[in-house]
Design a protein around this nucleic acid. Structure first.
Lengths: 180, 180
DNA sequence: GTCTATATTCTGATAGAC
DNA sequence: GTCTATCAGAATATAGAC
């Protein structure tokens, strides 16, 4: 059910997809879905929370780097690789924020801020080490994440460029963007 | 009607907003809206096309710059200023692409590609002049546009930073990202 | 050009049989 | 745990009075 819902929400939007449509995709009747989620809103919220928590857990599981520059490269490559592998979840977690009830919205926003803070701290460390020139680390973090997430709008796994080549291209821009 | 529709589509999403809701916002009954648009889909399409055409026209109206570096600074500041001033239209034109019928989608996508090409050509010129180091100008253009458009997710006109300060912050990153 | 009224279809969610 | 059947309301769009 979650797989079908994620795919349909990404393709057509939360509001445009009915529970009947999700059920048909799964191969059951609409009523059966309510054995797995109390309602449609909770289904959306659970999908978004699972994605954000997976993202944070995957990053926190990586071994810590030495210098800030190494950490920034790791972050850049991690973000691209993780997000291109879950395009539907990334799309839904960004596009459907406005369809969350206020309490659910606050939770997802908190997780998003946590993730931005991971990058912000790397940038601050680089400034302290003298290798980065960034006057507004929080804003730079949001700008870099926006740039990296944008890969999802055009990247195709069987396209001209491999994931490794894309990582290298973006790392080159990120590296220079924060350079002294 | 268009103002109300744009605001509501941005806040709640195309699929989640009914014609009755737009009519109520305007102060008429739902039936009256059909004197101004043949249907809801055309209303969405017209809003998106008008935004993209305004964007292209506004850019093309700017006087041409001399060197590529000057053109890139002009583009950076133009994009931030134009988009922060029309947050609803930017949001709808990106988020509601999936709710366009195929023929309408193709038109909007074409306009988007036209805009990306404007930046791509600046980057190519900079490479030719020897002032930029960009191996994939098309991808760099998409990456920079994604970063710049991301301003809209956090910028508030009455926030800590003025628009001029934001422009300067982003220009600093853009300038370095494509530097030799 | 706006109104009221309506046709038709779909919506999220629930009840109860099995 | 899935099914059928259903409730109550909302959706887009249209018709015709004024």
């Amino acid at each position: 059910m979650r797989e079908a819902a994620l795919r349909l929400f990404a393709q057509e939007g939360y509001a445009a997809v009915s529970m009947r449509r999700i059920a048909a995709e799964v191969g059951v009747q609409a009523g059966a879905l309510y054995n797995y989620t109390p309602d449609k809103q909770t289904l959306l919220f659970d999908l978004m929370r699972a994605h954000m928590e997976d993202l944070l857990a995957a990053w926190d599981d990586l071994p810590p780097e030495g210098c800030a520059r190494a950490a920034l490269e790791t972050f850049t490559r991690f973000h691209i690789r993780f997000n291109t592998g879950r395009a539907d979840a990334v799309f839904v977690s960004y596009m459907e924020l406005r369809n969350l009830e206020p309490a659910n919205f606050a939770v997802i926003e908190g997780l998003r801020r946590d993730y931005e803070t991971r990058l912000e701290m790397i940038l601050r460390r680089g400034v302290a080490e003298g290798t980065f020139a960034v006057t507004e680390p929080r804003i730079a973090a949001m700008a870099l994440i926006a740039m990296l997430t944008g890969v999802n709008t055009w990247f195709r796994a069987r396209g001209r460029l491999s994931l490794a080549e894309v990582e290298a291209l973006y790392w080159d821009m990120v590296r220079k963007a924060v350079a002294v």
